[in-house]
């Protein structure tokens, strides 16, 4: 069982690495936000799986907390990007 949990942890780390590659390569700012959002949700799962791997299920509290922070963070960044976009358009005209 521990072996399967370890495999899952490694797979999640690989997924997060791939999301990071997308976040770094862009090309648009929305690709980056999408990748960071995915990185965040995979972090939530990683914390949960890692908690079971090390036999400390109390990690789940951190995982719930991280899910909330991640969601609010993405919405906040989107609001910011949307505002900046509107300002750019206003300046152009």
């Amino acid at each position: 069982m521990t072996a399967m949990l370890a495999v899952a942890t490694i797979a999640l780390l690989a997924v997060m690495l791939m999301a990071l590659i997308r976040a770094l390569s862009g090309p648009t700012v929305f690709d980056r936000i999408l990748a960071v959002n995915m990185f965040g949700t995979k972090t939530v799962l990683l914390i949960a799986v890692y908690g079971f791997l090390t036999g400390r299920p109390d990690f789940l509290d951190l995982s719930i907390f991280y899910a909330l922070i991640n969601f609010i963070g993405v919405i906040a960044v989107l609001k910011f990007v949307e505002r900046v976009g509107e300002n750019d358009e206003a300046e152009k005209s």
């Binding site: 797979a11 690989a14 997924v15 997308r22 995915m38």
Partner: peptide, 9 residues
Amino acid sequence: GLSGAWGLL
């Protein structure tokens, strides 16, 4: 998860 990440790339 890996398939989704592959699709993302």
